[in-house]
């Protein structure tokens, strides 16, 4: 019974990992080689407006005479950078706070979690808009920071609860008896056991960051000079692409965002499945 179920699961985990990796690699390649891939320069408005997709313009042109495909390619870089950088910032803070709060009992844990619970009652989107409207500029750095610094709360909670349960296990006590310091127990003993949960969280915060960037750009909070999938969507919406049946302007940025996040989710899910499988296997033996 068990074998029957785990075998395809391992295979599906592998397939998911590979699929996700392929998707992300493609996006990474695109964002590294924007200039080579995009047929026209960024924000170049020299073409006729509202052109349908053709060989010259794979995804047509928009109301300003910009090549939508080129914009999409430039947008990839923004979304990729925001996703990865903001995701990393979030993860680092989330892990630090989560592990610390989970490892130390009593007041450290209570204080940290109180802060987390407190911050959780602020609507994050609203806070981001507030920060964005008061920051001197809303360039890429600000967006990354605003998203990265405000998204770690749930992650900290989940890491903490996992740390709590790891802490109960025998190996922590053993390490302590062996005279290891708190720091090295946290880093060498507990952290490796948290990898899957960290990975799962990393994936979800990265996805969240990409979507948050799109949302902020859509609300007109981002830097309008910056091309991102969110700004393309915002413009398509504002310029009534629908009246021209210009699906090539509305659908691709949404799909690109979805596909990109999908890639992350596949990797997260695939690796979780593999981890569970391995762990299950090792426990059985």
């Amino acid at each position: 019974m068990r074998n029957k179920r785990t075998l395809p699961r391992e295979r599906s985990g592998k397939a998911k990992l590979w699929g996700g990796a392929c998707i992300l690699l493609i996006f990474a390649a695109v964002s590294l080689a924007t200039a080579q891939i995009a047929p026209y320069p960024k924000n170049d408005m020299e073409f006729e407006v509202w052109l349908k997709p053709s060989a010259a313009h794979l995804l047509g042109t928009d109301s300003y005479g910009q090549d939508v495909f080129s914009q999409l390619v430039y947008g990839t870089r923004t979304s990729f950078l925001v996703g990865v950088l903001a995701g990393l910032i979030t993860t680092i803070i989330g892990v630090l706070v989560g592990v610390t709060a989970g490892f130390y009992r009593r007041w450290v844990s209570d204080a940290l979690m109180f802060v987390v619970d407190l911050l959780l009652i602020i609507p994050v989107m609203a806070l981001m808009i507030i920060l964005a409207s008061f920051l001197p500029s809303m360039g890429l750095t600000s967006i990354v920071l605003v998203i990265g610094l405000l998204s770690w709360l749930y992650m900290a909670r989940s890491i903490r609860s996992q740390t709590l349960s790891e802490r109960q296990r025998g190996y922590v006590e053993a390490a302590r008896v062996a005279g290891m310091s708190d720091l090295s127990i946290m880093l060498r003993e507990i952290l490796p056991n948290l990898y899957p949960i960290i990975l799962a969280n990393l994936v979800s915060v990265t996805t969240h960051a990409v979507l948050a960037e799109a949302g902020l750009s859509f609300l007109g909070i981002g830097d309008p000079k910056n091309v991102s999938w969110g700004t393309i969507l915002a413009l398509a919406h504002a310029n009534n692409a629908i009246m021209y049946d210009a699906w090539w302007w509305i659908v691709p940025p949404g799909l690109a965002t979805a596909l990109f996040c999908f890639g992350f989710i596949l990797i997260g899910n695939g690796s979780l499945e593999r981890f569970r499988h391995k762990r299950g296997a090792s426990q059985q033996t």
């Binding site: 924000n43 007109g220 000079k225 915002a234 504002a238």
Partner: peptide, 21 residues
């Protein structure tokens, strides 16, 4: 300089992007 443009008015923002460029 800071350059103010209307929020929630992407067409204005696009013009702002052109001008600041």
């Amino acid at each position: 300089f800071t350059y103010y443009t209307a929020a929630n008015a992407p067409a204005q923002n696009k013009e702002a992007a052109m001008i600041t460029d």
